[in-house]
């Protein structure tokens, strides 16, 4: 598999505080990569760096390289183009206060799609890919806010897919969901990886083990270990990884 994202010697500072230390990681195409670690370890900060969400943070300084398909995301790619290619789903579902249809059509419209037939097709394809179409196809004009939490989160996934991204970033996408909705999202992740690269931050160790191909363990802003998920959860190399995943600290 070829490399989709490549991170080289990444350091990130918030003012005087260094949040990430010399991170080197590669993400291949069509794989699910889980980022785990205790609260405050830098995993979400790292995730947000991949589509430049940290640009909005005051006094944030980044050194090192982040390459998407070999191009530097800070200098060689326009941020709007980057965020079209690298979608993001957050911890709490955040549908827009508009109809289900408009939630999905919003992104494509922003990127210049205006024909109704084309938008209809994108809406159906995106909702189908997010395993939501059958549940909402008869009420597309209803408010997205009336959906359940699990449906709202799948709507957010569909909204990301509507602009035809290559990478999906997920920041604890199931932490606000009930167990059944969580399983649906996990199933969705496994299906989506046939087309997309997915990088997921999760506090749920079993979820990382269930859905990901590779896992990276972060601690105090450092990347401690990254390997195949099977390897991390059966025989991690670093004792700190073992202690964290077995619940000895965290």
């Amino acid at each position: 598999m070829s490399s989709k994202f490549e991170v080289k010697e990444l350091n990130l500072f918030f003012g005087e505080f260094q949040a990430l230390y010399n991170i080197n990681l590669q993400f291949s195409e069509r794989e699910v990569f889980a980022l785990i670690g205790p609260s405050g370890c830098g995993k979400s900060t790292f995730l947000k760096t991949l589509n430049r969400m940290n640009d909005l943070v005051l006094n944030c300084k980044i050194t090192g390289d982040v390459l998407l398909d070999g191009k530097d995301i800070f200098s060689a790619i326009d941020v709007n183009v980057l965020r079209k290619s690298v979608g993001m789903v957050f911890q709490k579902p955040n549908p827009f206060a508009m109809s289900i249809y408009e939630n999905i059509a919003f992104g494509p419209k922003t990127h210049g799609v205006s024909k109704k037939a084309e938008l209809d097709e994108i809406v159906e394809m995106s909702l189908s890919a997010a395993a939501l179409w059958d549940e909402v196809k008869d009420r597309l004009k209803k408010s997205a806010l009336d959906l359940s939490g699990g449906q709202q989160q799948r709507l957010c996934v569909a909204r990301s897919l509507a602009v035809n991204p290559e990478v999906l970033l997920m920041d604890e996408p199931t932490s606000a969901l009930d167990p059944l909705s969580t399983l649906k999202i996990e199933e969705l992740i496994c299906n989506l990886k046939t087309k997309y690269t997915i990088i997921i931050v999760t506090h749920n160790m079993q979820q990382a083990a269930r859905v990901s191909d590779k896992t990276a363990f972060f601690l105090l802003g450092q990347l401690i270990e990254a390997d195949l998920t099977d390897k991390i959860f059966s025989s991690p190399k670093d004792k700190r990884t073992e202690d964290y995943i077995t619940g000895r600290f965290g």
Binding site: M205, A209, I232, F233, S234, T241, E242, I245, T246
Partner: peptide
């Protein structure tokens, strides 16, 4: 307990 790593082994 969903044991992993050394515990699971």
């Amino acid at each position: 307990q969903q044991p992993v790593a050394g515990d699971l082994r």
